[in-house]
Nucleic acid binder design. Structure first.
Lengths: 405, 405
DNA sequence: TCCACTTAAGCAACGCTGTTGCCAAACTGC
DNA sequence: GCAGTTTGGCAACAGCGTTGCTTAAGTGGA
């Protein structure tokens, strides 16, 4: 269902219009530079419209509004939305009130037209989530995992979780079973995988996950893609969570996700795009030094955020932990002009109010020129799976292709 | 000379192909979203080719190499380069050695085809530089300035400096005097203005420059554009310097410029694009807290980098100053996965070796997983004007239009 | 009830983009 | 001197968004 490339089954396009998720790396002729041709142009505009449709949610959006927001002519929007409707990705859904003429037709995304799987491989647990085009979870499965086991075992467990969510959602997803190419079995576009860093998102290889050095250099993306027969994208857990949590905002803002679990990490969405750095090294938040010659940290250095903050949390001193985290967050907010901060991870989950309040307090105390409260601080909702859901966004994000320029 | 829009004098395009520098803000129909049409497509590819031509420098680059690097077909590259040659922006310059067939024709940017002015308004001095398309300075002028004076006086001084550099370069720039539209008098595309923050680069307004609150909200860009009759772009001094210093690299790397002057600021180029933040607030490096409950800072907080580092420098303790700066730099490098660090500013200029060595030492000492020396640390050359030259890049950068996606 | 007016949306023709197919030019090597 | 290889341009083409115009579907006053 809803194969993205409908018009031209013949002649393999030099570049796919809507970038297939996670084909990535070693795909474009040269690193960095990307010339654009008509398919790319079309894919860009299609993605733009799709993104606006998603952002409009239940309320929907009219063709003319799409034209205004994109800067395209109404006729171009009509053509694009016609294609999307033909592919089943969008549908008409009622009318706006008339303003003296023909009322505007409301268009909405058809969330069930395609799905993506998000897979979170944590140290002791594997969680898979099936989400629809709107990013809403429709099925989930989780089970124990030992990241210290041989890769082959971990792969088998991962494939099992993915199969579970695909199976559990199979009955409900049969809207128009035909149409789709053979690759998009069951309407699943691909699988996004999130795991603890370090790793290389471009190459799709794992790194020396703390405690489990045997992962170093393992081509996880390629291995999983082969076993699953689906495109796979790999990224750090914090990056995935940041991508997913920033998605509703849609626009071009800057956003930080701070994760307090075994370690302390960050995911950064800057100007609407996930910032990973050339080596997927960005977001190393835990070893920011906030106390020159401070207490020793497990990393061998002194005065790291992680050492100070997690030590305080471990001994039950939540006030100090929150305050120290707040100082780190404030550094980050000021350095990068961040709009919004979200906290997550097991340590935060147990005391959401304490941490959000503590961090917000430090942000307000800094004489940075921003009005107090200008940077909202929240924590992830209980019972949600920000990392697994965010991982699915590794697959979805390219569909809403994040911008020209 | 070398008007960018050669083909269609008739019918005012809805959007200009190569984005006129610094028209910015309130230009696109909606904030954030940007639909693309054929002129945009053409502009994008033209900018891409122009960027590769610039990056190739004296050595030049062949059409086929351009095709490989951009992913465009050779024929498309031929068309694009033909346009650039017709406009005088590029020229053939010899041949490569044959590899068994017709030798490749080498193309080069014609640096003199257009110029840009960079203007640095510092607290006590105004510096203007005229640079060519390659970013090389061809004329400079500077004189005293009192940023505390009324805006009108400052404007007059600024206009004077700009006029000086334009006049001093007039005789040499007359290659093909005709052709150019009336707007591009003397081949100057626009003026980039850099000044101390805070300010709003999108609106083009100044902020409460420390010590001179009367600048708050002053529409500097509009005022200068009117007086000069040229497009004007406004940004923070550190941002301008970062943009200019990162330019030679060209590619999509991440880069940080750290400025030690009256205060301590940073300019960040992430994934090849200047990161300013929604409020031009990014780069507030001086008040990163590196010492919880540390010595009081002028900003009212405690333990800021600026307080610790500049205080040490002021009392002659360069070792401590460099080390503290290094810790701040290391935080930034690890958080953002930075590739290269450049130091600048008066305090650094006096002791370049001490600071670069000190910072590099801290970077190497951090147990971050990067190999020691993996992040080069350098200082700006004596006698250069990184901020003024970088300001000119505020005008040039859009020509080399920084990328689709 | 009718009719003038307004607004939305689609059809058809069009201009311009990069692409494809083909051919001429230019050099190497036998 | 000729075969082979490589470069680069000309011409025709497919497909993108745009323009001009028509049709659909409402409102509101006579």
């Amino acid at each position: 269902m809803a194969a993205m490339n409908s018009t031209d089954p013949h002649k393999p396009a030099r570049r796919s219009p809507s970038p297939g998720p996670a084909a990535s790396a070693a795909e474009s002729p040269a690193p960095g530079a990307a010339g654009a041709n008509l398919p790319v142009l079309r894919g860009h505009n299609t993605a733009l419209v799709l993104a606006l449709l998603r952002a409009s949610g239940e309320e929907g959006i009219s063709r003319l509004e799409l034209a205004e927001r994109t800067g395209l002519t109404p006729q171009a929007v009509s053509k694009i939305t016609a294609r999307l409707r033909a592919e089943g990705l969008a549908a008409e859904a009622g009318f706006r009130a008339s303003t003296g003429g023909k009322p505007r037709t409301v268009l909405r995304l058809v969330p069930g037209a395609a799905h993506a799987v998000g897979l979170h491989l944590d140290r002791d647990e594997a969680t898979a989530v099936l989400v629809d085009l709107a990013g809403r979870p429709v099925a989930a499965a989780s089970g124990p995992l030992d990241l210290g086991a041989p890769p082959d075992e971990v792969l088998t467990a991962a494939v099992g979780r993915v199969a579970e969510v695909r199976a559990s959602a199979r009955p409900g997803s049969a809207e128009r079973a035909g149409a789709g190419g053979p690759g998009t079995a069951g309407g699943v576009l691909g699988v996004g995988v999130a795991m603890p860093g370090p790793l290389d998102h471009a190459a799709g290889t794992a790194g020396r996950v703390t405690g489990f050095p045997h992962w170093d250099g393992f081509p996880l993306r390629a291995a999983l893609a082969e076993r699953l027969g689906l495109p796979v994208a790999l990224d750090k857990d914090t990056n995935a969570a940041a991508l997913g949590l920033a998605a509703p905002g849609g626009g071009g803002g800057s956003f930080a996700y701070l994760h307090l679990g075994t370690g302390l990490g960050a995911g950064l969405v800057l100007d609407g795009a996930l910032h990973r750095g050339a080596r997927t090294g960005a977001g190393e938040f835990g070893h920011q030094v906030v106390q020159l010659d401070g207490p020793p940290c497990g990393c061998g250095y002194r005065g790291c955020l992680e050492a100070t903050c997690l030590a305080a949390a471990a001994r039950g001193d939540l006030g100090t932990a929150a305050r120290v985290l707040g100082e780190g967050a404030a550094n980050l907010v000021e350095l990068l002009d961040i709009d919004r901060v979200v906290l997550g991870g097991r340590t935060v989950a147990a005391h959401r109010e304490r941490f959000t309040a503590g961090v917000a307090e430090v942000l307000a105390a800094r004489p940075s020129g921003r009005a107090p409260g200008a940077v909202p601080v929240t924590a992830v909702e209980d019972g949600t799976r920000p990392v697994a859901e965010g991982a699915a966004h590794l697959v979805l994000a390219p569909l809403y292709g994040h911008r020209l320029r």
